[in-house]
């Protein structure tokens, strides 16, 4: 049995989800001073002082985020493998979900690279240019919501079509995924606001919309582990029958 185990690397893939989350929270959120993000309403001079004061922490945080980013793709592949079992005859949604995870990984890569660039030249560039680069990275980060919307919707649609009596993914998690994915459309409003609840550091944009990504990921990570357990049990049962 062991040498023909279809779930051999699944544990590694499933654990990359929680490890990614830890890296993102520690690196991007805490060290990166993004709890909440720096307000886009402040003056360039205030911004420059903020960057110069926290230069090394932000640099380290963004390096951690870029390093853990591929783990998100690996976790997405675990989800895809489970989706292929949920709908055994059609893997379109499973494939879309994987591509969604892959391109979402780029949304972690590109802005973090730009933010490292901002801290790297904080001692020699003018404040307005630095702030412009910092803002641009945010546009990629928030306004680039569509790959993750595609990913979460494919996730929900596929698991809802699971014919099992007890589906691999609970139906409420599937619906939550679809809802979270669609609710990210609110990010379309972000580039129009420099202050208030719809700015990138605002109550709606950051504390609700942005945090939904993390909350959903926590829930999905837990149920990915449970789904793998169910699949392994199914596999063992079918193996027992075959033997």
């Amino acid at each position: 049995m062991t040498e023909r185990d279809p779930y051999r690397y699944m544990g590694v893939l499933a654990w990359s989800g929680p490890i990614f989350l830890l890296g993102a929270i520690l690196g991007w959120a805490v060290l990166g001073h993004n709890l909440p993000p720096y307000s886009p309403a402040r003056s360039p001079e205030e911004f420059l002082e903020f960057i110069q004061t926290n230069q090394y922490q932000i640099q380290l945080g963004m390096i951690i985020m870029m390093t853990v980013a591929p783990l998100y793709l690996m976790w997405g592949y675990a989800v895809t493998r489970i989706m292929q079992k949920a709908d055994a005859y059609n893997d379109i949604m499973a494939t879309l979900q994987l591509w969604g995870a892959g391109f979402t990984m780029l949304v972690f890569f590109v802005p973090c690279g730009l933010w490292i660039g901002v801290t790297f030249r904080a001692d020699s560039m003018d404040a307005a240019s630095l702030r412009f680069m910092f803002d641009t990275a945010w546009m990629f980060f928030d306004t680039g919501f569509s790959p993750v919307t595609m990913q979460f919707c494919a996730f929900g649609v596929c698991f809802l079509s699971d014919p099992r009596e007890v589906p691999l993914m609970p139906r409420w998690v599937s619906w939550l995924g679809i809802w979270v994915g669609i609710s990210f459309f609110v990010f379309m409003l972000m580039p129009f606001f420099k202050e208030g609840p719809l700015a990138r550091d605002g109550m709606l944009m950051f504390w609700i919309e942005f945090s939904l990504f993390f909350w959903f990921l926590v829930i999905a990570c837990v149920y990915v582990f449970k789904a793998i357990g169910k699949l392994k049990a199914e596999h063992a049962a079918s193996g027992a029958v075959a033997a």
Partner: peptide, 13 residues
């Protein structure tokens, strides 16, 4: 039906 989970999340948002 399970769509109520979606409805609840949407109404609270």
């Amino acid at each position: 039906p399970s769509i109520w989970a979606f409805i609840l999340a949407d109404c609270f948002s």
